[in-house]
Computed example of a mutant assay.
Amino acid sequence: MGKIKVLTGNYSAAEAAALCHPDLIAAYPITPQSSVVEYLAGLVHDGVIDANLVQVESEHSAMSVVQGAAAGGGRVFTATSAQGLALMYEPYFRMSTLRFPMVMALATREMTSPETVWSGQQDAMSVREAGWIQMFCDSNQEIVDMIIQSYMLAEHPEVLLPVNVCYDGFYSSHLTEGVDLPLQEEVDRFLPPPSFHHAVLDPDHPFALDPLTPGPILMKYRKSHLDAMEKALEVIDEVDKKFGDTFGRYYGGAVSQYRTEDADVVIVTIGGMTGTGMDAVDQAREEGIKAGLLKLRFTRPFPAEKIRDALKDKKAFAVIDRSVSFGWSQGPMHMEVKAALADADSRYCHFSAIGGLGGADISIEMMMETIRNLDAHKNEPGERETQWYMVD
């Protein structure tokens, strides 16, 4: 048992990052992430943590600064949202393809335009092909625990990739919950100091870090990157078990399940909507519908095999996305779950459900409508029309 605190999601991310002894933090505020770096700036100013804080002029600079520090062998941290993530995309892509481990909190937000600062997952989904590990939290406790776990995952010698710890803007970033914050000595025993040496800048041993790379070598880079992503699926499970054995909280690895053992119909959730989904499953059970829930905790690497196992022998499923896949008129995770099932998806009744864009609510009744729809058509295999959670 650590120290119980009542924290917002942003403060949870900041407290957890501080426990991991970052050497350098890049700070640039953007709604709804701002209070993450503001809180950390206060901890540095007050001498609570011994870290270099660089107040940069933009998100592009933020990622460039942490990239340089990581190239020097340091443990680094920053946070962003939406348009800030878009602005840092160039060094963001470079961070992963140079195989520099780091952790960045992403308080997810809808992308402009029409102009909005409200919750959505379009920002995270739009960069899922940039080579980062990407995971989604549904509670402030999970934010704390996954920031800590993610450093161990990122710095694993067979992974060496940066990690986004994503959580819903405003719904998680600004709402408070009780959090069991681990003690510093507990985290120190769990998380060793960084020791990656694959590309550390050293004045005594100069080398060209990122020279113009010919095609054959670039092919090897990309292949090794994808191999590391696949290895990460194993390491995620290993880190989850080690964390659970140490702190008593297990999360199930890349996916987690709720009441799926005997379920006929399953809703698939991402992030903060999961708690509402569990309530909807409980209500459906009271109505006699054998419903269950599958939570996608990691979207990169995509846990295709775990999804296939979880949906095996089920009759119907719907993936509830808080973002859209432009050009497909569906949610992006519905497309990826279908891809994971390949031709087997023709055995199921399934459809995409989209809601919560721009901060709109996803209610229990909306999820109940999805569950009832699945139950009504569970014996009719095939893909049905996308369901939109529209609010009048």
Rank of each mutant, 00 (worst) to 15 (best):
3 K>N: 11
4 I>Y: 08
7 L>A: 03
9 G>Q: 09
12 S>M: 07
20 C>P: 11
20 C>D: 12
25 I>K: 00
28 Y>V: 13
29 P>Q: 06
32 P>F: 07
37 V>K: 04
38 E>D: 13
38 E>G: 01
42 G>S: 13
45 H>M: 03
49 I>Y: 08
49 I>K: 06
50 D>G: 03
51 A>E: 05
51 A>W: 02
53 L>S: 07
70 A>V: 03
71 A>S: 08
80 T>I: 07
81 S>Q: 07
81 S>M: 10
84 G>N: 07
90 E>A: 11
91 P>H: 02
91 P>F: 02
92 Y>G: 15
93 F>S: 15
93 F>I: 13
98 L>I: 11
100 F>M: 15
100 F>K: 12
102 M>D: 11
104 M>H: 02
105 A>N: 02
106 L>G: 00
108 T>H: 00
109 R>G: 06
109 R>Y: 08
111 M>W: 04
111 M>N: 09
120 G>K: 05
123 D>E: 10
125 M>V: 12
131 G>F: 04
135 M>L: 15
138 D>T: 03
146 M>T: 15
147 I>C: 05
149 Q>W: 01
149 Q>M: 15
155 E>L: 08
162 P>D: 06
176 T>L: 13
180 D>A: 01
181 L>K: 06
188 D>Q: 08
191 L>V: 13
192 P>F: 03
194 P>V: 14
197 H>I: 11
198 H>N: 13
205 H>D: 14
210 D>W: 11
215 G>Q: 11
217 I>P: 02
220 K>W: 00
221 Y>S: 05
221 Y>A: 05
230 E>F: 05
237 D>V: 00
237 D>R: 00
241 K>E: 14
245 D>H: 00
246 T>S: 14
247 F>Q: 06
251 Y>K: 03
255 V>W: 04
261 E>K: 14
262 D>K: 13
262 D>R: 07
267 I>H: 09
274 T>V: 01
276 T>L: 01
278 M>W: 04
280 A>P: 12
282 D>A: 01
284 A>I: 04
288 G>C: 07
290 K>P: 09
292 G>D: 05
312 K>A: 13
315 K>I: 06
316 A>I: 13
321 D>C: 01
325 S>G: 04
327 G>K: 00
329 S>N: 15
329 S>Y: 13
333 M>T: 12
333 M>K: 05
335 M>R: 04
337 V>F: 08
337 V>E: 10
337 V>R: 11
340 A>M: 09
340 A>K: 10
342 A>M: 13
344 A>I: 03
347 R>M: 14
350 H>W: 10
353 A>Y: 06
359 G>Q: 14
360 A>G: 05
361 D>W: 07
364 I>Q: 14
366 M>I: 09
367 M>R: 03
368 M>F: 02
374 L>W: 09
386 T>R: 05
387 Q>L: 15
391 V>S: 04
